[in-house]
Computed example of a mutant assay.
Amino acid sequence: MSFDIGSAQPSPAFSAAPVFNGGTISSGTFEDEPPLLEELGINTRQIWKKTVSILNPIRVNPSLHEDADLSGPFIFLMAFGLFQLLAGKFHFGIILGWVTVAALFVYVVFNMLAGRSGNLDLYRCLSLVGYCMLPMVIFSAISLFVPHGGVVIFAMGAVFVLWSTRMCTQLLVELATGGEEHRGLIAYACWLVYMLFSLLVIF
């Protein structure tokens, strides 16, 4: 019985081992992998574009909001809760609960007004209501430096509520069918939602 080492054939299982060169894997496919945030469904570039579109109350770009997502609204809601926490109010659970109920309320109102022609789904409604919370986040941040109980805070609250209401109404009417002729009632529903959040900031 002899052992000839030179005649031994390499095993095919170990013949394609990856080669490490300078910290990179030459035979791997990690370079072709998408970024981790994209795998999780978080598109930071899209969130930034939507945020910039909400910051312009004069011209709204509904095409940016055709692809609904909840990453941006979640960031805004956490920022809103953080500013409320800096004001001495722990409202994270209240904010998340209220925005869910608010989106459900706007969804029901819109589809009841639009009838069979309405095509607004709850996911898109929650995305739009959440993105239009950005003026409320700004109002919550500015309210940290404004004395409460005066006329100034109420005037600022009215301005930011109208800003959020206008943006949300415009996006709902542009992206969903059947709401154009009921714009006033949809705006009233949105106004109630953002008025509720403004009262949370003021009081």
Rank of each mutant, 00 (worst) to 15 (best):
G23D: 03
S53Q: 06
N21M: 13
I42G: 00
I25V: 12
F20Y: 09
Q46T: 12
I47S: 05
F14Y: 02
T51A: 15
Q46L: 14
K50P: 01
E39V: 03
W48T: 15
F30Q: 15
G22F: 03
G28A: 06
I25C: 14
P35F: 00
L37Q: 07
A16C: 01
I25G: 12
P18Y: 05
G28T: 03
D32H: 08
S27R: 07
E38F: 01
D32N: 11
P34N: 08
D32S: 13
W48Q: 14
N43H: 08
P35K: 07
K49V: 12
K50L: 08
E38S: 06
S15C: 02
W48E: 15
D32K: 13
T29G: 08
V52M: 12
N21G: 04
F30S: 14
F20W: 11
L37F: 05
R45F: 10
K49C: 10
A16E: 02
G41C: 04
V52K: 10
G23L: 01
G22A: 09
E38H: 08
T44I: 07
E38Y: 02
D32I: 06
S15F: 06
I47V: 05
T29S: 13
E33A: 15
K50S: 10
E33F: 14
A17P: 00
S26H: 12
I42F: 09
E33Q: 15
F30K: 13
A16W: 01
K50N: 14
W48Y: 15
R45Q: 14
K50W: 04
E39P: 02
E39F: 04
G22R: 00
T29L: 08
P34V: 08
L40S: 05
I47M: 13
E33G: 08
S15A: 11
E38N: 09
F14A: 05
V52S: 11
Q46C: 06
Q46A: 15
P18W: 06
K50H: 07
E31F: 11
F14I: 06
L40Y: 08
T44K: 02
F20M: 13
I25S: 11
T29E: 07
S27N: 08
S53E: 09
A17L: 09
P35V: 03
T29A: 13
N21R: 14
S26N: 14
G22M: 01
L36Q: 10
A17S: 01
E39Q: 12
S53C: 05
V52G: 00
P18M: 05
V19R: 11
I42L: 11
K50G: 07
Q46G: 08
P18V: 03
L37R: 01
I42A: 10
A16F: 03
L37P: 01
K50T: 09
L36A: 11
F30N: 12
F20A: 13
G28N: 05
K49S: 14
N21W: 13
W48F: 13
A16R: 02
R45D: 15
F30R: 12
E33T: 13
I47Y: 05
K49E: 15
G28E: 04
G22C: 04
V19A: 11
G23F: 02
T51K: 12
G41A: 05
D32A: 15
L37H: 03
F30E: 15
L40D: 05
S27I: 03
